[in-house]
Design a binder for these strands. Sequence first.
RNA 1: GGCGCGUUGGUCAAGGGGUUAAGACGCCUCCCUUUCACGGAGGAAUCACGGGUUCGAUUCCCGUACGUGCUACCA
Length: 516
Amino acid sequence: MNNKVRVRFAPSPTGGLHLGGVRTVLYNYLFARKHGGDFILRIEDTDKTRYVEGAEQYIFDCLKWCGMEPDESPIREGEYGPYRQSERKPMYRKYAEQLVNEGFAYYAFDTPDELEKMRNELKTPENPSPQYDGKIRMQMKNSLTLPAEEVKKLLADETRHVIRIKMPENETITFTDMIHHEVSFESSLVDDKVLLKADGMPTYHLAVVVDDHLMKITHAFRGEEWLSSAPVHVLLWKYLFGLDKMPQWAHLPLILGPSGKLSKRDGAKYGFPVFAMNWTDPKTNELTEGFKEKGFLPEAFINLLAVLGWNDGTEQEIFSMDELIENFSIERVHKAGAKFDFEKAKWFNHEWIKKLTVKSLPTGQAGLQLKVKDVLEAGGIHVSDESLLEKMIELVKDRCTLLTDFYEQGKFFFVTPGSYDEASVKPKWDDAKKNYFETLAVKLNEENNFSVENIEKIFKDLATEKNIKPGELQMILRVMLVGSKIGPGVFVIAETIGKAETLHRIEKAATYFQSI
RNA sequence: GGCGCGUUGGUCAAGGGGUUAAGACGCCUCCCUUUCACGGAGGAAUCACGGGUUCGAUUCCCGUACGUGCUACCA
């Protein structure tokens, strides 16, 4: 008897990993970790036509970035492999045939053309999408309608065929969902889903049941879009392995975009990422932006996703992965879909940037320092002084919402401004100011202790002496050192960049201001 | 069209027969700061609608509307 919790996430390698996908992984992962269980990654690649080169590796990379590495997966083998359904192909047929032998499924020989013909003939305004179901299966070409001899011959001749489930006539299929509680369906209203495709690959319906059984999955969390096909899965469990062995289900609410279901296109349309990381579709070469590249911290990303559709009942909103694991409960996940709000997403990132110290990172991932360094270097700023980098981060992190903001907010610590906010300085600049800054430069140059306090004292004493309001002077000094009216205290900036650089910037700017 | 699921401010949401219906984001005002932010103090804004049940319904029940998902040899 194995009571250990085992959950799995089963993406199909057909494109990028969107918000809803990552949240599904996250909830699976949190549940597994909370209960000391296993988190398994299984790849659903039974549809060769939709398989996209590179998508599988991309999924691994995204999970790694988020800090959710599976215990068993195609790259970290366990005892229940293989973890790619395409590599498990031989396993499925016998279950499908068992179902046929027991009368729960049947062989269907209808060609795609015949199916299309049937649908077209039956299509009416009242019934826009006719199903292959109990009402019409006796008019189709299958082992229920054909004489046994003919079926035998067709199979012996290796005629292309599929195996379909035979939905019972009048049965109410009821099951318990951890979020929606009791859900019921009328069996006669569900169609005879294909279980095994003509190429021998299982469909999702067969594969999910067989694999969950073979991999001893105890809990299965997936998007709400699967709720409609749950009755098929329930029946399959009943026929194949017993309802008592069926995992507990939880159908997660959808994440919505500004107008309806969140789509890949919403990203481009509204200017926010919808994938975890940048994804370039190799077929179209189309790039969909990722949260990582947009400047999000993985801590913030999983945090904002976790509380989109779940909360622990307290007022806490900022959770680390460890706190999430501790406090998460699937029962508190909402029933209703949640609209994604990019403004709030940015707020989470802001909070995490403020929260993280430069070096220590709770996740053990690359620190803020390295990430900020990457941002600066991407902007062409070479960082050679690590202690200056650390100091800069501490000084400006309160005013950075995205990692990429560190460029604008921090570049002046490393490079002399190349341009100035002339509109602010021009009206204030006169001979008295020119004279003031010339004298200031001399005085600062004589000062050996170039500390914030000393710089400020010299600055203010001289202002008093020259009878100029310090406020205006401070603004000008800021533009001299920074180039614009942003950043932390001017005197702190001066101290940080050092005496030589401060003097250099004052002189360079004064010369420039004189010319405008 | 059928079936499923859902519905507390603009958004995320707590709550759950009697409450001034929490909190957060965003927005607005003020304070701090002669920079930009952070921070602090306030403010505007909500129980989809209609019937029941009840002394009382945002909360329970039933309808309606709206939203959303499924209705493929896709997952």
